[in-house]
Amino acid sequence: MTTTRDLRGNPLNDRGDRDDRDDPLDDFVRRVVDVDGVTKTVYVAGSGPAVVLMPEMPGISPDVARFGRWLRDAGLSVYLPSLFGVDGAYPSAEAGERVVRRACVSAEFRAFAGGGTSPVVSWLRGLARLAHSECGGPGVGAVGLCFTGNFALTMALEPAVIAPVVNHPSLPLDDPAGLEIGAEDAAAVAGRVERDGLKVLAYRFENDAWCTGQRFAAYRALLGDAFDGRVLSAETANTDPPPFFRDVVGCAHSVVTAHLVDRDGHPTVRARDEIIAFLTGRLGAQAPG
């Protein structure tokens, strides 16, 4: 993965200059992490038990970074891996569509039905092991968003992952009732749920074309009562999201990022706070004094 940057290390957009709405991510430590010979950039911030926060399409947007900062401020160490797109870039429609097309044909991802578990999850499990060794605590949280939504579940095959959050999972793109997981992994996850009492928290908007009620029903069929799927009214979504979400996604979708309304008491803010409470409770984190 190649990211074009200016002389200060800030990400450049397709025109070769920075958009004022981009996020420089300069309050994160930029690391290059090697897992089994594969290296990826990971942005790290905070202290306390670790959470692997995976980006949504089309990458580590300012809204994804904002959510990472909320986790950091709640007393968690955030590990934010760069999996696609330009790090920190504001989500434009044209550039975002190109990122989606590249990801859909990448060997790292299984975007369509029948593909099974995406290979990149093996790398993410290794990142979770590393984060646990560095941060300690009872285990690690994993938060997936959109394209990476289900990765939080399949990461739970790593014993260190004890708090998976599956947000508006969009894969497989061509099967609204499908799950992005191989049969063997599905059986193993269900076994861990039964054996270890694992709980899975999930969110979606109603009428989301990319994450349907059929998909949540499939999670419930696999995980039973361990799956806590929560649905927000589409009318509560931010009506002025970035262009990629307005023009390409085209519906209420990203509960705690692009479609969040940052106002006290708002349903999307309550969802954010519920996720943070789930993670801090399971991981034993304490907000900085």
Rank of each mutant, 00 (worst) to 15 (best):
L153D: 12
M155G: 02
L80G: 09
V105G: 00
Y90N: 12
L179D: 05
A89L: 13
E180D: 12
E97Y: 03
F216A: 14
F147T: 02
S170G: 08
T154L: 02
T212Q: 09
E184K: 05
H168V: 11
P119C: 09
V86S: 15
V166S: 08
P159S: 05
A190W: 01
D175P: 07
S133F: 00
T148V: 04
G116V: 06
D87E: 15
D185A: 02
I181D: 02
R204Y: 03
L127E: 05
L80D: 07
P172F: 10
D87N: 14
G197R: 09
R192K: 08
L157W: 01
T154H: 02
D87T: 09
A89G: 11
M155E: 01
A89H: 11
S118E: 01
A95T: 13
C135N: 15
V140H: 06
D87M: 09
A111E: 01
Y79F: 14
A177P: 13
L171E: 06
Y90F: 15
T212S: 15
G178M: 12
A217M: 06
A218M: 08
V193E: 03
D87H: 09
A209G: 14
A163L: 10
D208Y: 10
G85A: 06
V143Q: 10
V165I: 13
G213A: 15
S77N: 04
C104N: 14
A128C: 10
R102D: 15
N167E: 15
C104A: 11
A93Y: 06
G136A: 13
R102H: 11
V200Y: 04
R192G: 11
A183H: 14
A218T: 13
V86N: 13
R215N: 05
A221I: 02
S92Q: 15
L76Y: 05
I181F: 03
V99Q: 00
G88Y: 13
R101I: 02
F112N: 09
T117N: 01
A190F: 04
